[in-house]
């Protein structure tokens, strides 16, 4: 197997708040190969966004990367000087945020914001930069691109703004794009346009993507691999079809079952009982055991490590689901 593009090893990012240490990311590991799309799934408080920010070195106090490695082409980004990180951001790894309203600067034209990206990361001269911007805007489906370069973000609708954000993220030709809930703020018909656009752009450029989302349906349509986070830890990862088709971890299974199934309409949805525990005060043993239908005495004693299960699956569970128990 070829070396992965990005390899995250035992990443731990903690926030030191007044009311205690929030171990938002607490020992997360995964690999992404060139051209792969990985879905990073979890509910609020799972730590999925913090993973994205950690990779880009954008963790501010009271947060801190406490340990682990983030290897880009084998080079560790943890503890790398800010100067080196700045060269990585945008050129190697770029980011698409959830809210297109706030991720563009309302005071600058779209053209200027795009041009800035190229000025920082390429040696192109002004006319070449402008041409590149126009070409990029057209490729993300914005018509009359030359004219729209002079427009301000508020002159675009939500979906169009997200296209601009994607165009900026793609401009410097990054090899990895981190998309944090890129379509959550959008309507479903616009969401499907944007997802198609992202999938096509990523494939055309041979880039990789980490798609951070709470929406299992979106990842199942977009990603090759899925990594499921719960309370700052990876509880399951594997190929999308294995994770969705026959998950080994009861949490993943619970998430899938909570989505209403139009084919088999029951009066009651199966639900995960209880709520996500306070991350400052996790139970001893497995973090999920208090909500888990399969929990036994062992789960209260030892935190299960992430181990290889059947097929492509790795799961952190003492009593994983078998294939026969698939939904």
């Amino acid at each position: 197997m070829t070396a992965p593009l990005l390899s995250v090893r035992d990443l731990r990012t903690h926030f030191h708040t007044f009311s205690g240490v929030v171990k938002a990311v607490n020992g997360v590991s995964f690999d992404i190969g060139a051209g792969q799309v990985m879905g990073l799934v979890g509910e609020s408080g799972g730590g999925k966004s913090v993973v994205g920010f950690s990779i880009l070195g954008l963790i501010d106090p009271p947060g801190r990367i406490e340990g682990g490695q983030i290897l880009l082409d084998g080079q560790d980004l943890v503890g790398a000087p800010e100067e080196a990180l700045r060269r990585v951001r945008g050129r190697q790894i770029s980011m698409v945020f959830q809210d297109p309203m706030t991720s563009l600067n309302p005071l600058h034209t779209v053209g200027r914001q795009m041009d800035e990206m190229l000025r920082l990361h390429t040696d192109l001269d002004a006319p070449a930069r402008k041409a590149a911007c126009i070409e990029m805007l057209e490729s993300v489906g914005i018509s009359r691109a030359a004219e729209r370069l002079g427009a301000y973000p508020h002159q675009f609708s939500g979906g169009m703004r997200q296209r601009v954000v994607i165009a900026i993220a793609l401009l410097a030709g990054p090899r990895l794009i981190i998309a944090d809930e890129p379509t959550t703020a959008l309507d479903v018909t616009i969401q499907s346009q944007i997802l198609k656009l992202m999938r096509r752009q990523i494939a055309d450029r041979g880039a990789s993507m980490i798609l951070i989302t709470h929406d299992l349906a979106v990842v199942s349509e977009m990603a090759d691999h899925i990594t499921v986070l719960y309370c700052g830890k990876v509880v399951e990862r594997g190929l999308t079809r294995d994770v969705i088709g026959a998950p080994a971890h009861p949490y993943t299974r619970g998430l899938i079952d909570s989505i209403p199934d139009p084919r088999h309409r029951q009066t009651r949805l199966s639900q995960i009982p209880g709520t996500v525990p306070d991350i400052r005060n996790l139970p001893v043993g497995c973090s999920f055991r208090e909500r888990c239908p399969r929990a036994q005495a062992l789960c209260a004693q030892a935190d299960p490590p992430l181990t290889a299960q059947r097929a492509s699956l790795h799961a952190a569970c003492h009593f994983p689901l078998t294939e026969a128990e698939a939904p």
């Binding site: 509910e43 609020s44 619970g254 009651r268």
Partner: peptide, 15 residues
């Protein structure tokens, strides 16, 4: 709401 909580609330509403 989170997906797992959505199911709880929908069940409660149906009950």
């Amino acid at each position: 709401l989170d997906v797992s909580i959505q199911a709880q609330i929908l069940n409660l509403m149906m009950d």
